[in-house]
Structures are given as C-alpha cells and as structure tokens.
Design a protein around this nucleic acid. Structure first.
Lengths: 375, 375
DNA sequence: AACGTTGCCGGGAACGATTGCGTAAATAAA
DNA sequence: TTTATTTACGCAATCGTTCCCGGCAACGTT
C-alpha cells in the first residue's frame, strides 16, 4: 500500500494528493482483483476458488481462501446486486414505527430478513395516502426485491399496488390487507377478536356497547366491525348505526377520536361501554375519557385492540385484544422471501390468519362483577 | 417489446422460454440503453442528456427527456452505487426498535435520510454485545456509507467501533455515546435531567432517594448518576452507595429490575423514592412496585427517564424525564450526512447536547403536597 | 485556403463480481 | 504414438452508469 502510493505519487503527485483529499478514503475496498494480482491468478479463478468451484484445484483454492481471509476480503454486495439484478433488500411500509404493533412487527420482519441476508428498508405512511404512494415510488425506484405493506388508513385507491404487483413485484400484505390483490396476506382473525371482546363486554353486563373503528375502507375495520355486530346479534342485542364510529386517520390525530367519543356521549342513550378497534384509538379513547373524568369502567367500560405493554399499567389496567405482531412480521417475511426466491411465478397465494389474544383486565369489568381479573 | 420478444423467440425459442420461467420478470428494467437504442443515440449521449450536460444540444435533450419520461425511466441506483462507490444507505444500531425512545429516534433518522435520498438499514442489538458486533460486521460488509449508533448496555469493548472509525467510516453516536471515539455525538443533557429530577423529588419532600441506572459503563449511566449525586450533595443529603443500583441489560430483563428493587427494599432504611435512569427501568420499576402492591407515590415516589406517551395514563401518572428523541435522530442524521458528503476528511467533531424535558405528574409527589400536578 | 474553435456526439473503459466458452497441459484410452 | 478426455485455468462479456477521450462537422479567423 505504502509503496504503491509512493510510486503513484512519483508519477502524478498533484493528482494523487487531490484524490486523497477528495475521497475520505471510505472503506478500503479490497476486491477480487487485488487477490488475483497478488497471487498471479485471473479474477475468474479467484472468483471460482472463493465459490468453491470444482474447476479449481485444491491447492489454488487453499491459496486463495487463505489470502482472502488474511486481507479480510468481503465480496462487494453492490456489484453482486448489479449482476444478479437483485438488491437483497425488502421494503416495508407501515403507518408509523413508533406504534407498538408496528414496531413489534418490524422486529419480526427484521429478524427473518437478517437471517436470510436481506436488508430491510422501512418507511412510514403516517396514515397518509400521499406519503404512502411517495414511499412506494421511492422504494421501487430503489430496486427492492419485494415489499411488505400494511396500508394507510387514508388509502382508498389501490391501483399503484395492483400495478406493481401485476408487473411482478412480490408483495405481502399484513394486518391491513388489500382484498382485491391476490397475493400472500398475513392477518389476525379480526372478526373473532372483535366478536370475543364484544361478547366479553356483554357477559360482563354491558348493554349499550359502542364501537370506534379505523377508516371504513380498511380490511381490519370491516372485519372487526362485522365481528362486533355478530356478537351483538348473537346475544339478541340490536345494533345501532349511531354507535359505530370511524376515525379516518386511525386515531393518529387525537381530535378525531375526541369527535367520535363526543358523538357517542351526546346521544340520548349513551353507551356504557366502548370497543376500540385500533391501537391508537384504544389509548386515545382512554385518554379522552380520563380527561373528561369519566370513570372507567364504572361509567363506561373500555376494551380495544392494542399491542402496548404499558396498557397493563394504566389506571385502570386496560383490557385489550393483542395481535401476535412479531410473529406476523416473521410470517410475512417468510412468505415474501419465498415469493422472491421462487423460480417460477407463484400463482397460488395464501392468507395466514393468526389468533388474536384477549387479555382481560379491569377496564372492561362492570362494577357489579368487580373484581374479575383474568390474566 | 412484443416484437422484440418475438424476434428473440424466433432465434432462441427454448432459451427464451426458459428464461421467462426462471426470471419472474421482476421489474421490467428500462435502462439507458433502451432509450439509446430507441432514439438511435449512444448511451453516453443519453446519459449526458439526462444529466443536462452542456455538451448535448437542446433538441437532443428534449428528445431524450421526453422519451425517458414516457417509458418511465429511472436510473438504476445499484449501478450508480457501484460506479460511485457509495450505497446511499446508512446503518443504524439501537437496542430495540420496540422502545419508544428508539422508535421515535428512528423516526427522526428516517425522515432526514429520506429527504436526502438515503436508505436506512436498522438493526437491533437487544443490549447484547455479541449481537451488536454481528450487526456491525454485517452492516459494514453491506457497504453502508455511514453509521448511527446507540451502543448496547453490555458493550464494554469499543475496539471494533474505533477500528471502523479509524478506517474512515463515518459514525455518529447518539444517546449512548462512546467517549473514547472522537466523532459527532448527539445526547441529551443527562446530568441536568437527573439533577433536576432528583432536586424535584427532594423539593417534594422525599428524603431517601435511590437510583436505578443502566449498565455502569454506559455514558448515559455515568452522567445521570453524576447528576443525581450532585443534586443530593447540593441539598446536603449524603449519598449512599447502597442506594445506587445498576441493571446490566438496561432493564430489558424484568428480573434484573426486580433484583435492583428488592436490593433497595431489603435495606434497613428503605428509600422513599426511586429515580429510574433508563426507559425500560422506569416502567419495569413501576411494574414491580405495582405487583408488590407498594403505593406510588405514597409509599415510594417514582420518577424516571421515559419516552412513552402512555406514562401519562398510568395509574398514577408517571413523572418522567423525556428526551427529544425525534430531534436527536434528525440531528444525528444531519451530522452523519455532513460527514459522508464532506469533500475533505473531517477532523473537528461536535457534541450536540439537547435539553431533556421534565414532565411532572403524580408519581413523584409526596402525599403531603398532593395534588401538585404540573404539566 | 489553411488552421483553430466550438458544438455535439460516439467509443470504450471503468466500477466488482460471475460465468460461458476456449484452451493448454496432463492424463487416459486406443 | 495418436487420439480422446480430463483438469485447471484465462479471456471476455455482462449487469447499468458515468466519463475520459477522440472525432467530425461547421463555423470563424487569419
């Protein structure tokens, strides 16, 4: 290195000096050429030796491998990507990272991706259609091999996803899936989750149960509301349209939750319990009830979807429907990698539906029954 | 496209058919060559036209740009990376994504990186030295342009970071910094944060204030403990070694927090307040006090570092020292990009210290004073 | 009329790796 | 000995870009 530098300096002193300044030297890239030159071999031989090709003699292999080890050679992943036309990275679009459900899911995604030598590139839609589409564009222009998506609350137009999928981009949806696009999907049994929670409320003596859901177009909202309605029907309770509210931004904006709650409380017969059908709505709802000094569960019972560990510590501890987020991330990634690495185009897609977990605590237990704390 | 395919099919029917099967067609890569061929130009001309070079006539430019737009051309970032020897992606290593502080910081990192056309590759150490080093290795072998790190609790040996930095890899530390390595750092005024919290406890009438900190080697632990001690000293309270506990894994394992709390409660004079000096420890601590049915703050007051929004909803609402996590992520990324894109090697490094925010709620207010709820 | 400028463009070598093909030497088979 | 076969390696193309050259017109200058 030193001698090399010196000789170059001798030939082009100024040029080299400038170069040294301009390039902060980065990571001294030791390439296959360096090995070839040092060992008096061709790059092809070195490459094959490193890949343990049968065409290379054991002695040469040993030589190459030892030298590569010695100078700490690592194949340049970018060169590989260019040649193999795959980047070995997958894109992820979620509403927001700082949401327990998504961060746990990303955790799962990352763990499987890492094990298989893939990078994960994360972006957040913040429930905005526009941001989602921008990120979609950006990610695809960055040549990712596949995509894992939980669509934004605002999104009503799935054409871009559809086009992308039709063009051959492997996509796996999780949590909030797009029913119209035929690909792998990973969800929780939202219907059952909402059904069980509603039924639980009824069993605990609540009569007037309202529901606040995420955006109407979202798959999870439809399924959860359906579960809620079914549970009411099964218990002979008539559903009221005025008891079902939606938050277009998934509760990301507290004011929309506030509006939903207000809408419920202003009615002639007020609800005695609220079923919150999305993470942010659950905690948002509690926040509002608390600020209005409405006692939970004595005045209004509360249960909702949530993946936060801290719900247990809230006063009163919140009953929640918890999704196996980490597992969902793992499964989605497994399916995606399967799609990416499949030799032939995949035409059979599956929808994995996991079981949600109902964790009952104090917030959903009517005073008559208190304390029935099941954990 | 169709005619092209047909002519190829005519020449190499079998070959093409196999190809079509093996390659799930991916993303139909429209390249600069396609444009050149279609327009009867050379690739150099097209490239230059796209980059608006002065060497290209306005007419040709127009032609190329319009055609490129029409067929939706996007430069292949991988080819660019190979040529420019930069991947336009930065690595991030944090303890765990599903931790409010880190997810908020990542949020900030991602926003700035995205604006500047960089990808973010995230990995989690889970406070383990081994995992951290594995990820460090992996990330550097994936040719990232720079690194943002908050070191793991377990890490005592910073040689790999140091070596990497010495080799020219731009690194920015945030939150948990490595004092020995001279590079940009972004922290919060940990000393002041702990000082103010301690002082607040004293003012609220607590006399026996204990502290539970993260791993001893961590910069944040040292600074926070120092602030705690200083506040005691300033108020003429003698510090007790037995009142300072450490959690080697940063509270990631609840049992170590349990052990720390037990250690405090077993003493002849028990503490009447606990200062938790790390996110996980704060909530872990509360969790344990609650499970032991120790009233907060009546029996033991509690305040601690935390970035979770839900601390407000806990019963009783937790007083916290909150870090501007999002902002820290933004600043760290800005500094990193500055480092990456600097023409000449940077030798002057700065440490940005932001102000923590003390949010006082009920958990740190002694009964005599209740209710003094400052928000 | 001869020569220098300028404008505009193409050829081709990189970047780092893989791989189909060709081929020399060494060995085996005839 | 001649021919076939194997062994072990090198050449060169390729992936998509950029950019250093070099070239060829059409000018303008003397």
């Amino acid at each position: 290195m030193f001698t090399l530098l010196m000789s170059k300096l001798y030939l082009y002193p100024a040029c080299e000096l400038i170069n040294l300044r301009d390039c902060p030297m980065k990571f001294e890239a030791v390439t296959i050429k360096d090995i070839a030159k040092a060992l008096g071999l061709s790059t092809s031989t070195v490459s094959r030796a490193l890949r343990d090709s049968y065409e290379i003699s054991p002695e040469t292999k040993k030589l190459v491998l030892e030298y590569a080890e010695k100078i700490n050679y690592h194949p340049n992943p970018i060169a590989l990507s260019l040649r193999e036309r795959r980047s070995r990275s997958i894109g992820v679009i979620v509403a927001e990272i700082a949401n327990s459900f998504f961060s746990q899911a990303i955790d799962g995604i990352e763990s499987i991706a890492y094990k298989n030598g893939y990078n994960v590139i994360i972006s957040q839609s913040r429930e905005s259609f526009e941001r989602e589409q921008i990120h979609l564009n950006y990610l695809t222009s960055r040549s990712i091999d596949g995509l894992i998506v939980s669509v934004a609350s605002e999104t009503k137009d799935f054409r871009n996803f559809k086009d992308l999928h039709d063009k051959g981009m492997p996509i796996v949806f999780f949590d909030r899936v797009v029913t119209d696009i035929d690909t792998h999907k990973v969800t929780v049994d939202n219907y059952q989750g909402a059904y069980n929670a509603t039924r639980h409320l009824i069993e605990k003596g609540f009569k007037q149960i309202a529901a606040i859901a995420n955006s109407e177009v979202l798959s999870i909202s439809r399924e959860r509301v359906a579960g809620y309605k079914a549970a009411l029907a099964d218990q002979g309770i008539k559903e009221k349209d005025s008891f079902i509210r939606h938050c277009a931004h998934g509760g990301l904006i507290l004011s929309e939750v506030e509006e939903a709650v207000s809408g419920l409380l202003e009615q002639k017969t007020k609800p005695d319990a609220i079923l919150a059908l999305s993470d942010k709505i659950t905690t948002g709802c509690f926040r509002i009830l608390k600020s209005r000094e409405i006692a939970v569960p004595d005045e209004i019972g509360l249960i909702g979807f949530s993946n936060s560990d801290l719900t247990e510590l809230i006063g009163p501890p919140l009953s929640i429907i918890k999704q196996p987020a980490f597992e969902m991330g793992e499964i989605a990634t497994g399916l995606l990698l399967q799609l990416i690495e499949s030799k032939r185009p995949v035409t059979e897609f599956e929808t994995k539906t996991l079981a949600p977990q109902l964790i009952l605590r104090e917030s959903s237990v009517n005073k008559k029954d208190r304390p029935v704390i099941i954990r």
